[in-house]
Each structure stands twice: as C-alpha cells, then as structure tokens.
C-alpha cells in the first residue's frame, strides 16, 4: 500500500511547489528583515532594564496590564514605583537605582480580611448545605446569620497564586509570609471584606469586622463582631473612627502603642486583632490568654 502511494507520488511537483513557496517565503523574509532594520523602534533602555528586574509574574497587582506595561509606566511616572507587590522593597531600590532617584521605603500593601469570626464565633439560625463556593453561597438569603462576614467558601484561596490565603475554621486567614498584595482575593471576595492595607507595622492592628448592623442584631449572629459602641474612638483617640456603626482605623495616622492598648483593652468584642508575618493565626488583641499556636497552612 505504502509502496503504491510512493510510486504514484509526483516527486517533481512536490519539489517544485516546495521550492516555489520557499523562494517566495525567502523574498518576504528579505523584505521584512530590511524593514525591521529600517523601522526599528528604539525602546528606552531604562524601560528594558526595569523590565529585566521585575518579577515577571504579570499578576496585575500594580493596576497596569502586566510587568511590561508597569516598566513603561514607572519610567513615565516615578510615583508608581511602590506598586509592585511581588517585588517588594528590594525591587523598589533596584528600580530607583536604575532611574537614578532616591527611594524611600513605603509600607507594602497586603490583603487584610475584615472578619474575625471562625466557625465557633458565628451564631447561625440555619445550616447551609449548598454549593461550597462563596459566590454561589452569597446569593442565597439567610445562608448564614451575618450578611457581612466571611463565608469560608474559599473563593479567595482558589484565586491566590501565591498560596497565601487559607480558610481556617471557616475564616479566610492571610499568610503574610507569602502574601504579595496582588489583590486577586480582593476581587474574588463576593462580600468585599478583603482590602489591601498598607502594613505600616508588623504585626498590625486591624478591625476585623465589616458589619454595619445594629448592636442587637450583631450580638444575635456573632460573638466577635463590632457593635458600634465607640469605646475605641473614645479611648484610642482620633486614629479610630466610626463609619456607619462600624469602628475603623485610619492607617494614615496609625495609633501608637499606648492608645492601641487603651482601645483594645476596652473593646468588649473580639474584632480588634493583630495580624502579621510571625503568626499565621489571627490573634485577638484584647485576649489576655496566650496567643493561639500558629495554625500551619495545609500544604499538599
């Protein structure tokens, strides 16, 4: 069979057609090579140098289309220099050196989960047995008592490229040794309880609650959520402020240790927590007990 096919093959035609295409191809190769030499775009060597030191993760955390776009953006606008989460401080200095400017270290942005209720802290009137994902669960009414808090479905865990966020006992917990602040989890969270916050200190005090509900309702569904008592504002000074029944911290003027202690000491609830890189578990700020053992993120 094969021999028959080979016998019927017109080798001449094959060679001619091949040679024809090869020659025409060659013709265009020559044209394009000349054009490439004549029309070569001089790229800014600075942009290329910066692109070379960028991590190349193309995570988009800087808000631009990718590392290449970020390199061009930084050269045009030096203010963008601190935007690269994965690169961190070392990258800022490397880029500053390339561009010949002084870089001052700025606090890196990291994901902060504004909920501190583990499964034990939630008081649910119903038991949810539906699809596990947060996006699915959040559209179902009364899927859990609190309509603000972490659903624990792990949508953030699924989108995290850096294995830096894990659902531990029903609450998303960020591993600050791994988090680079790309913001993927911020976008993934259907309840919008994750934010990128400048980590001015490590560990840093955060208000881990997002509920604007009235005290009675919050007490009804959560053991740790903010009841809007304003004690932290009264005790801690103007670094703390109330936003529609929810206490918040102004990180532009991060409170000093004394006012933090005053505020956390008075807080009757458990939403003021310290998060940081030395302790994966969320630690209650007004917890006089020993901090819980760091829960090691499960590695597969």
């Amino acid at each position: 069979m094969l021999e028959m096919i080979i016998a019927e093959l017109d080798l001449g035609a094959i060679l001619t057609s091949g040679a024809t295409l090869l020659l025409t191809g060659l013709f265009f190769v020559i044209i394009l090579t000349i054009a490439n030499a004549k029309l070569k775009v001089e790229r800014d060597p600075m942009v290329e140098a910066i692109e070379a030191v960028l991590p190349g993760a193309n995570c988009g955390g800087c808000g631009l289309a990718g590392c290449s776009a970020y390199a061009e953006g930084v050269v045009k606008d030096h203010g963008l220099i601190g935007r690269c989460g994965p690169g961190g401080d070392a990258l800022v200095h490397a880029m500053a050196e390339i561009m010949g400017i002084e870089a001052t270290a700025s606090a890196p942005n990291r994901a902060v989960v504004h909920c501190s209720a583990h499964s034990d802290d939630m008081i649910n009137s119903t038991q949810y047995l539906g699809i596990a994902g947060c996006a699915e669960r959040t559209i179902i009414p009364d899927n859990m008592g609190c309509s603000y808090g972490c659903l624990g479905g792990g949508d953030c865990q699924a989108v995290c490229e850096f294995d830096a966020i894990h659902v531990i006992e029903g609450l998303a917990v960020v591993d600050y040794n791994k988090c680079v602040g790309c913001g993927a989890c911020v976008k993934a969270c259907p309840r919008n309880i994750i934010s990128l916050t400048a980590i001015v200190e490590d560990p840093i005090l955060v208000m881990a609650c997002s509920s604007h509900d009235k005290p009675k309702e919050v007490r009804g569904y959560c053991k740790v959520g903010c009841i809007g008592c304003t004690l932290c504002v009264k005790m801690g000074g103007d670094s703390f402020f109330m936003d529609n029944g929810l206490a918040k911290i102004d990180y532009e003027k991060y409170p000093d240790e004394e006012s933090r202690q005053k505020a956390t000491g008075k807080c009757p609830r458990g939403l003021m927590v310290y998060v940081g890189s030395d302790d994966v578990a969320v630690r209650k700020a007004n917890d006089s007990r020993e901090p819980p053992k760091p829960v090691k993120a499960k590695t597969e």
Binding site: T20, T24, G25, I31, L32
Partner: peptide, 26 residues
C-alpha cells in the same frame, strides 16, 4: 501550481501585515 495560491496569498498578507505593524509602531 494554482493550488498553492491559498498558502502563497496568506504568506503575502501576513508579511504585509508585519510591515504595517512595524511602520505603525515606529
């Protein structure tokens, strides 16, 4: 070799697009 025209035509078009692309980028 009429039957080669599809391949040959596409080659011409692709090359010309490359040329336009270089020209525009410049």
């Amino acid at each position: 070799m009429d039957y080669l025209k599809y391949i040959a035509f596409i080659m011409v078009i692709a090359s010309m697009v490359q040329l336009v692309e270089m020209y525009l980028r410049k």
